[in-house]
Design a protein around this nucleic acid. Sequence first.
DNA 1: TACAATAGTATGTAATACAAACTATGCGAT
DNA 2: ATCGCATAGTTTGTATTACATACTATTGTA
Lengths: 113, 113
Amino acid sequence: MKIETELLKGAAPVVVLEVLSRGQMYGYELSKAIEQRSGEVLTLGKGTLYPLLYNLEAKKLVTSQWDFKTANRKRKYYSITSKGKEYLAKQKEQIKNLYTGLDLVFGGAIRLA
Amino acid sequence: MKIETELLKGAAPVVVLEVLSRGQMYGYELSKAIEQRSGEVLTLGKGTLYPLLYNLEAKKLVTSQWDFKTANRKRKYYSITSKGKEYLAKQKEQIKNLYTGLDLVFGGAIRLA
DNA sequence: TACAATAGTATGTAATACAAACTATGCGAT
DNA sequence: ATCGCATAGTTTGTATTACATACTATTGTA
């Protein structure tokens, strides 16, 4: 089940940070993890994910370091920073609030079972 | 409580259509209705709402007609079309799916009480 | 050896939410 | 009476973002 692009907007960085908050990952791994952990509902193309990661790094919400040893292939591992954790907590609240508002407008029609 | 702009993206047209599905409204009225019905959580600035309405009209999801009689002030009333109702139903499902995915990723942390 | 999966980067595009500036009317308080 | 606020709608310019696409490269397997 794929979510229409526009709806995912804004939520994408929060999802990335949430997954990274459980341990460091490299880009490709992250991409697969998001799909799996969301029950195949959320998918981020690499054209979305990598620029998103550069952006999060520029904001110091994540840090990265290359790993050339673990695999023969080069991998860039991303970790969430303490600043990123703070941001994540705030954004989770925001998402909950948004959902609360939508639930009111839609009269419970989008509420999870 | 104001939701950070990016999170609302994509959900805005669905909210507008949902409110219009309960009866026609003019722009300003719609703007206030969205605030009230969402428990002051969702706010759409007029710089967002009006262009959004033009866009929905161009897609034939809503229709509009001027009213110069009811009030001395000119008002443009918007109504949802049958095409709009179909679209609304689909989008509501999408939003529900999105939250299902987010709920899985966040492990229930954004679930409503 | 050909192919699929893995791994990351770069570029260009479309959509959209917003602020701000603009025009204009109606109404209540000073 | 007039000043300011709420109402009512439009237009313009900006920033963000998610995406497709194309590109470089390696690894494992059929």
